[in-house]
C-alpha cells in the first residue's frame, strides 16, 4: 500500500508519534508532580498571600 519506501514513511510517522507522546508524557508527569507538591504544601497549611482572599482556587 505504501510502495517501495514504506519503511521510511512508517519510520517518519513513528518518529513523530514517539516525540509527540514524549512531549505529552513530560507535560503530564510534570503537571502531576507540581499538583502533588502544591497539595502537600496546602495540607501543611501554607497559603500564598493572595490566596487568603481568593480562597485557594489553585487548580
Amino acid at each position: 500500500m505504501l510502495g517501495t519506501h514504506a519503511g521510511f514513511i512508517v519510520a517518519a510517522y513513528g518518529f513523530a508519534v514517539v516525540v509527540i507522546a514524549g512531549l505529552f508524557l513530560w507535560v503530564g508527569l510534570d503537571g502531576r508532580a507540581q499538583r502533588r507538591q502544591l497539595a502537600e504544601l496546602e495540607a501543611r497549611g501554607i497559603r500564598r498571600r493572595s490566596d487568603v482572599a481568593a480562597g485557594g482556587e489553585g487548580r
Binding site: G31, Q34, R35, Q37, L38, L41, R44, I46, R47, R48, R49, G58
Partner: peptide, 12 residues
C-alpha cells in the same frame, strides 16, 4: 504551579 510552589516554599 511550579512558581506558586516556589513562592509558598519561601513563605514556609
Amino acid at each position: 504551579l511550579r512558581r506558586r510552589i516556589r513562592a509558598m516554599r519561601m513563605i514556609e
